[in-house]
Amino acid sequence: MKVVLTGSLGNIGEPLVKELVENGHEVSVISSRASRATEIEALGAQALIGKMQDVAFLTWAFTGADVVYLMETMEAVGDMFDTAVDFNGAISQIGEHYKQAVAASGVKNVIHLSSISAHTNKGNGILLFHYNVEQSLRSLPEEVNIKFIRPVGFYTNLLSFIRNIKSKGLITSNYGGDQKEPWVSPLDIASVIAEEVDLPFEGRTVRYVASDEVSPNEIAHALGRAIGLPNLKWEVISDETLLRHWLGIGFNAQVANGFVEMQASQGTGQLYEDYYRNKPVLGKVKLEDFAQEFAKAYNVAEF
């Protein structure tokens, strides 16, 4: 099949391209950076260079595809330290561009990389834009089949703790403790998407993706052991303290408030309510596996 991917060659895109090519699909990859073309072609895919904000380009890129894979990221619209960026607005607009391009191109099968909590516009903080994009795509005509893939929190998000561990010897967040929560590896996400490409498309479906379920304290123990700090602690601070810190280092206010709200929802379990109603089979990459990757990044990081 002809498969067109947005998202270039990120943590999900690269393994996904490899798997789809190995499965015999004709793969094209959209990237905004011309410098990515050589890497994309080296994987056996065609490079399509253009922007997600360009509906005419997207329409051209999608035309003739059997399946289109859609994703959007904060990095695609700006720096989290740029106080002028409206991330929710800009990413929600990309969703509208996707909708217009899918309709104009005649594509009938879509896979959308969404997120946990995209079923609601309440209490999900910075993840609100995933809800907005899902709603845009759901307004497409019924003959357009859409598979919404909703991963939980990425293991790679834990890399943001490296600076604090190196400077203060601990992890700090506005939630913590022994309550387990789901985490996911980009490799498991790529495998699920590749699997869904080959499965029948019918109507609108939702599939959650997770690799492991562990508590904040278990995360601290696993990461600490991997980096030689077996007594590493996960310290809980207030929402106000965390927000003040992030604003103090220059975070975009929408981003800072959005992450505080999202993480508070992690602590109460609200973020995972629909996940547990539709719990998936867990993937292959466990926390202990990621801890080794974390240790490599930790050991070379300089702050």
Rank of each mutant, 00 (worst) to 15 (best):
S215I: 03
Q135G: 01
L5Y: 02
L16D: 06
E26W: 08
L158G: 14
S32Q: 10
V192C: 08
E142D: 15
N299G: 11
V152P: 04
R163Y: 13
L127P: 05
E240V: 04
F294H: 13
S114P: 01
F303D: 08
V3G: 05
E195G: 11
M262Q: 11
G269I: 13
E39P: 03
A220Q: 09
A34V: 09
A253L: 01
N257Y: 06
R33Q: 10
V77R: 02
F251Y: 14
E288Y: 06
E72R: 13
M74H: 10
L20P: 08
P280D: 00
F290T: 04
L5F: 06
T205S: 08
M71L: 15
G176P: 10
H97C: 12
V67T: 12
F148L: 10
S105F: 02
N121Q: 10
L170D: 07
S136G: 08
K108Q: 09
A297T: 11
A222H: 08
A210T: 00
F294Q: 11
N278Y: 01
G153M: 12
I94Y: 05
R225A: 15
F154I: 01
N252P: 02
Q100E: 13
M52G: 14
Y276S: 03
I30L: 01
T6K: 09
V29A: 12
A34K: 12
H25I: 07
I126N: 02
P151F: 08
V197E: 05
T156M: 11
F57V: 04
